[in-house]
Design a protein around this nucleic acid. Sequence first.
DNA 1: AAGACGAAAGTGGTTGA
DNA 2: TCAACAACTTTCGTCTT
Length: 306
Amino acid sequence: MLKKKLKECPDCGSKNIFHNREKGETVCRECGLVIEDRMVDFSQEWREFDDDTGPSKRRTGAPSSHTSYDQGLGTEIGSSSDYYKLGGKDKDKFFRLRKWQYRISTAIERNLKVALAELKRVSSFLKLPKQVEEEAARIYRLAVQRGLVRGRSMESVVAGALYAACRRHEVPRTLDEMGEASGIEKKEIGRTYRFITRELEISIRPSNPSDYIPRFASALKLSPETQSKSVEILEMARKVELTSGRGPTGIAAAALYVASLIHGEKRTQREVADVAGVTEVTIRNRYKELIKKLNLTKEVEKHKKK
DNA sequence: AAGACGAAAGTGGTTGA
DNA sequence: TCAACAACTTTCGTCTT
């Protein structure tokens, strides 16, 4: 059977694609994206000579989606019509297997059904794009298949999967927001997030402070100019290595605060702190570092007087 | 009076022996 | 597994606008 193979990762463009036949997965070695966990045969086996014979030989059905709990497909072992062909011993085996298959698949499917409902709820609460929701569903499905949910609450794994998906798609939500939306403590989300990304070998690059800027800026009703100024500041900060090791939200908040001063759209530290989910103190610390290392003191002073 | 600033002590997570 | 450690928070007193 011919498999249509992807030449490069649709996510990061890397050519380093790994097809794992045993697991039936296609994985990008660069970014860890699971491109397809059920390899689909896109090739056509039959040529269609006319419209009559065509449809009957096509094997495609309704599109399958990761967010529908069984991808629109269920698995069953055999059917009663096959069973009379078997001898006595095999009959037993047949029934045992079918029973097991039934138990396992219904357990997983039941789980997925509930989990994906929860996932959709949280995702729409956070107004996450469809892509992210799909990615999260994919991650969750993998987690269930590998039995990573055992010993953890389903909700926390859902939250962890969503958080991971957000990071992968660079639409970061803070752990606080995720916690608020899912009703799970943020440290718990952090734990499961780390756990599943490690177990599933999903690599995620450290989040970039400037990813947070648009959202914070709009929450503070800051002008686009201020917004781009703060991205500029972040870029400069990155060059002098002010950003590494520090919480991205704190840096983003401080950059936004500085930018708001420079553009005469002053927001209080309190206001910025609230939308960014950090304290004033953190903003002050980052702010101090920023104006010192980047020599922005004069620039800020100049605008203060106006 | 509100906002900004900074010191000190506390918290949760990472790291390295 | 434990202790050291860095980042961040909480709290609170002081200074500035």
